[in-house]
Amino acid sequence: MQRVNMIMAESPGLITICLLGYLLSAECTVFLDHENANKILNRPKRYNSGKLEEFVQGNLERECMEEKCSFEEAREVFENTERTTEFWKQYVDGDQCESNPCLNGGSCKDDINSYECWCPFGFEGKNCELDVTCNIKNGRCEQFCKNSADNKVVCSCTEGYRLAENQKSCEPAVPFPCGRVSVSQTSKLTRAETVFPDVDYVNSTEAETILDNITQSTQSFNDFTRVVGGEDAKPGQFPWQVVLNGKVDAFCGGSIVNEKWIVTAAHCVETGVKITVVAGEHNIEETEHTEQKRNVIRIIPHHNYNAAINKYNHDIALLELDEPLVLNSYVTPICIADKEYTNIFLKFGSGYVSGWGRVFHKGRSALVLQYLRVPLVDRATCLRSTKFTIYNNMFCAGFHEGGRDSCQGDSGGPHVTEVEGTSFLTGIISWGEECAMKGKYGIYTKVSRYVNWIKEKTKLT
């Protein structure tokens, strides 16, 4: 034993070699072989497995989906700052455009905790909710729209109204504003409101030439003092309507412009014939205590009207009353817009006519005020429907199939267009061939041609 100890002390290297040989010859039971080890760690190889990531292109799944990435790591994937920024906006807080917040056709661009709407022409605001041009839906104005110097929408209202708090709607500024039905039992019968379409306001006024200088022999019209197929109006439903009495009662109609003036057809009036105007009328054979009678003290036909040349060209006249009318729910003026808007309103496509005229061709006159909704007829169809001249200051309205029309005794009465609950004068009943005849239409004086003249002559002093 002493000898062994001496050998170990003198030859430590020998001992180490012996131990190493023993270990190498022993069977290893701690580690699995290569094949079995792979069965336990069965993990798919990654895209760049075996390579240094710093030297390969980034992978979106590896960089940002398996674990949260930084902007720089995302930049490695896209290799483009702009594309990385677009991805980053949604990656950080989701897609803010998912709810489609942009209105009126706006395009949404996502941002971090926010979004941006790219608005089409005519709109602005956070969600493109603000109209900035009158060309689109009248700028959301209830009545009139004008573009300011910086191309912003400025709404306005006709006389007797003021802008509401929203700067879009119009509200009454006087007790009985024009064009409004205020009798409670008839307010439910107000005709369907007309909503502004998209309009090209630059070209809204037709490029028409008034044929002022045409000389033409007097034409022989049949029954051209021209509501057939209409309905009984309720008291106060058309408070701007008046009836004219002269040699015979209810020979023509008219509309209240203001307390002192009536507008009617020029062919209705004769110099030297006494005319009485009755406002607030409903049943011409009954006294309903809503009527107001006034005498006409002055007749002003349009300066281009000449019955000797043509009885229905420039067929418009103004009547001055001896005493002002007292405005109330049964006696209310009709609204008159400017030339541009009167023309736009007419193009809405349908209007209402009213009167006490004959209820059928050569038949009896109506006792109760009649009204009828009539569609506008395109000019080409209008011209083809008659052998008589249709001037540019006239328009056609009615039904091709016949059966409904204005008729004798309705002449001078109103053709009105309702705009968001307020009625505007767009025409004056003038003439036609018979009444409600198939293929024939009622012919009306186009008020847009005469609004400046009306307003100039009827100013209240």
Rank of each mutant, 00 (worst) to 15 (best):
N310A: 11
A307L: 07
F395I: 01
K188E: 08
V374C: 03
C102G: 00
T287Y: 12
E165L: 10
F395P: 01
R449A: 15
V181A: 15
E288P: 06
A149P: 10
I297V: 10
K68D: 14
I299T: 14
A173E: 09
E67T: 09
T264N: 01
G427S: 00
S11V: 13
L369A: 14
G412D: 02
E67A: 10
D378K: 08
G160F: 02
C102P: 00
N138M: 07
V183T: 09
R384N: 15
V419W: 10
N213E: 08
V228Q: 13
D249R: 10
E208H: 14
F31N: 15
C108M: 00
T381Y: 08
G402Q: 15
F388T: 13
D93V: 08
M437K: 11
R75A: 11
C170Q: 00
V263W: 02
T16V: 08
E67F: 04
V353Y: 04
E129P: 00
I299E: 05
I262Q: 00
D223I: 11
S217N: 13
S148R: 07
S448M: 03
I256K: 00
S329V: 05
I428G: 01
A9S: 12
F251E: 08
R373G: 04
S49L: 10
T287L: 14
V374T: 06
T218Q: 08
D405W: 08
L41P: 14
I309F: 11
S217M: 12
K109D: 04
I344T: 09
G421S: 05
S70P: 09
N328W: 01
P172R: 06
G230F: 12
C157F: 00
L32W: 12
S329N: 14
N48W: 10
F424C: 01
N222L: 11
A265V: 03
L24R: 03
A397Q: 02
N151Q: 09
D110N: 14
L23T: 03
L346R: 04
C382H: 02
K168R: 11
A265L: 02
Y201S: 05
V353M: 04
K234I: 14
F345E: 01
K126Q: 11
R46K: 11
H303I: 06
A366F: 09
E285S: 13
A9T: 12
V227H: 06
N222Y: 12
N283I: 09
T287W: 12
I210D: 14
W88L: 15
H361K: 13
E98Y: 10
V195C: 06
C102L: 00
G50L: 09
Y91A: 15
Q57S: 08
A164Q: 07
T84L: 06
Q185W: 11
K247Q: 13
I316M: 03
I316D: 00
Y341K: 06
E66M: 05
E434G: 08
G122K: 03
S204D: 10
G402P: 08
T218D: 07
V4S: 14
A366E: 15
D338K: 05
K89G: 14
E456V: 06
M6P: 05
K347Q: 15
E73G: 08
P12K: 10
V92R: 11
S411E: 11
D33F: 04
L20V: 11
F87Q: 15
E61F: 05
C157H: 01
V368K: 15
L211Y: 07
D378C: 03
N166M: 02
I15Q: 04
I262T: 02
N306M: 06
S217E: 12
K45T: 06
A308K: 08
F424W: 12
Y305I: 02
L32I: 12
T458R: 02
S354L: 15
E286A: 09
F238M: 10
K455I: 06
F348D: 08
G409W: 07
T381Q: 12
A307V: 08
L163K: 04
R226P: 08
W431F: 11
G179W: 01
E86Q: 15
F121E: 04
G357Q: 15
A37T: 14
L460F: 11
C268L: 01
D33G: 12
E116D: 04
L103R: 09
Q408F: 15
S148I: 07
E54K: 08
I136W: 08
F238H: 04
V277M: 03
G106F: 00
W88V: 15
E129G: 04
N138E: 04
L372A: 13
E35D: 13
V296A: 05
A337K: 00
Q237F: 10
T85Y: 06
Y91E: 15
T332G: 04
L103E: 08
Y441V: 13
E433S: 15
E323C: 04
C178F: 01
F78M: 14
N59V: 04
T209E: 12
S220F: 07
N42C: 04
S350Q: 13
L103M: 13
T461D: 15
I390C: 04
P324E: 06
T287M: 13
Q90L: 07
G409Q: 10
T85S: 06
E286R: 10
T84A: 12
T417V: 12
G355L: 07
G398I: 03
T186S: 05
G432C: 10
E231D: 09
K387Q: 12
I316S: 01
T85H: 05
P172K: 06
Y305P: 02
Y47F: 13
I136L: 09
G229D: 13
S329D: 14
R364G: 09
Q2P: 12
K293F: 13
E420D: 14
V248N: 11
Q143D: 00
V248H: 13
K89C: 04
A317E: 00
C435Q: 03
G94C: 03
W88R: 15
Q167E: 07
P12W: 06
G409Y: 11
Q237E: 05
S114H: 08
K168S: 04
T186A: 14
Y444W: 01
P12Y: 14
H303K: 09
S423W: 15
N295I: 06
G254P: 01
